[in-house]
Design a protein around this nucleic acid. Sequence first.
DNA 1: GTGAAAGCGCTAACAA
DNA 2: TTGTTAGCGCTTTCAC
Lengths: 334, 334
Amino acid sequence: MEKQTITIYDVAREANVSMATVSRVVNGNPNVKPTTRKKVLEVIDRLDYRPNAVARGLASKKTTTVGVIIPDVTNLYFASLARGIDDIATMYKYNIILANSDQNDVKEVQVLNTLLAKQVDGIIYMGHKITDEMRAEFSRSKTPVVLAGTVDPDEQVGSVNIDYQAATEKVITQLIAKGNKRVAFITGSLLEPINGVYRLNGYKNALKKAGIKFDESLIFESEYSYKAGEALWDKLAGAKATAAFVGDDELAIGVLNGAIDHGVKIPANFEVITSNNSKLTEMVRPRLSTITQPLYDIGAVSMRLLTKLMNKEEVDEKTIVLPYNIADRDTTKK
Amino acid sequence: MEKQTITIYDVAREANVSMATVSRVVNGNPNVKPTTRKKVLEVIDRLDYRPNAVARGLASKKTTTVGVIIPDVTNLYFASLARGIDDIATMYKYNIILANSDQNDVKEVQVLNTLLAKQVDGIIYMGHKITDEMRAEFSRSKTPVVLAGTVDPDEQVGSVNIDYQAATEKVITQLIAKGNKRVAFITGSLLEPINGVYRLNGYKNALKKAGIKFDESLIFESEYSYKAGEALWDKLAGAKATAAFVGDDELAIGVLNGAIDHGVKIPANFEVITSNNSKLTEMVRPRLSTITQPLYDIGAVSMRLLTKLMNKEEVDEKTIVLPYNIADRDTTKK
DNA sequence: GTGAAAGCGCTAACAA
DNA sequence: TTGTTAGCGCTTTCAC
């Protein structure tokens, strides 16, 4: 004997009202007489009725769930954004379907499609770059999309970021002011606009203003991983770099430890500054100097923006730029 | 003019078949003549038809999504499990709804209820402890549940863990063998069975076998956070501890840095061993010695177990214990 | 191998 | 303030 699921119809019958009335009290519709509301509520409680969100979703064409595409939850940068997203989602009664993409172009499109098949009300995408195919899918569907910590020069969908170019220019300028003539630029692929356009432009601008010639050999495209950074020291030494700007915290810790393990004194002989201010930066010794991004807030603001888009509210600016700062800690000279 | 959504009915009409046939080809039912299958597929492609998973869920009573309750995605231990869960979920065509609980008793129950309302096919719970209310909810609903990295002495639902007691006993015994008579025991709340029962029993057993008297002042209940660990040094010194077993990596790094910042030589004057072998342990200097848990696998195996439960397959043992090991790195003496 | 038809549990007009 | 009635888009018997 299977346990019978209680439906809105059962409640209606027990309470001697129509299912419409039950639906009204469940949905907080004010057009219900207090006494009937009370009666219905009592029956709901007694029967332990729980509205079926799937049926509701089919009827209302709203699922109150949003899809979140993330490269890897295990990366603290993205996990921090995800946390901000989920908190605001919860606040607005949404749930999130979290899907790891590994930044894989094929997987990404698949994931997007299953998310759309599941009728999510909106999508938050993280991943540093947008392939043309994803861009096409985004504009083809009417489901609102917000990019979190991800820039698209196209600006067709919503996005929340900091000004990567200005931030990078500022830290490079600072490093140069401290006497570094050869500052390494270590990021992920330059094909990602965040690296190849914004950060690199910031780097070049700083050099130009200081009258330093750009040197290709100081540019390092790397995997975003601790191991990759750790293995980089020989090349860095070979390029005669005296400081490094790094685009990812785990990568930066790798660079830092790689140097330390080779007996390099930090920051006396080599300075390092990273980009994300994830909690890792304060957990290593010496503590990493870093651009401070409001990681949680980037996620939170993205989700807030998405709620507006899903509600078809007017938004004056869907390309949001949050403030950044610089934390001079122990891997840069005072 | 709104973009009209394409339904199974549109496809049926265009292909001159009934919607039942379309449904069959979409679901890979073999009872369709190859020629009609081909025709239908062609129309699906041409119309760019995408099955509505919500409607499908309502009709079939299966949503192919599972709920995942996690204390905090930002904690690498749980994030690693989550990654394993999502990968296997994807492999079996499931999606995950990820919900942060902050280990908050009230929030947890709320989250569980919205997950059930959304008709998830199964639930994976992470969180170190199970409140009576959650236990009650679990047994009341017929939705399968698996605990990942979370023990319930009750063993009513599925679970995947390592043998925390044996692992703890082993590392404490090792620490004692190296001459430590006063080993601190630093974990989260002892109300959580993983700490108060399994790990503590392991600790006590090791002491007993070594003929060392249990000393309450060496037991530290802490928050699971870096800061908390960092602040602990004075108390540790006050208790004359010469080594510490720590139940969480971030907490352990805090303890480690707290000691180092006070000029303590590690491991010469103080040894530390932690419990999770998250990637953080190799990112700090000195590298943390640790119990190695197969984090990703705990998540992966949990999800695999859940798929079996959801399929009502026979499972011989739903309390799974995975192997652990010990990595002697640089915070313990050789 | 294929089609007709009855739901799945709910929302949202529209009437009353 | 409340009830009636269509769907929402699909799966799934049951016939043919």
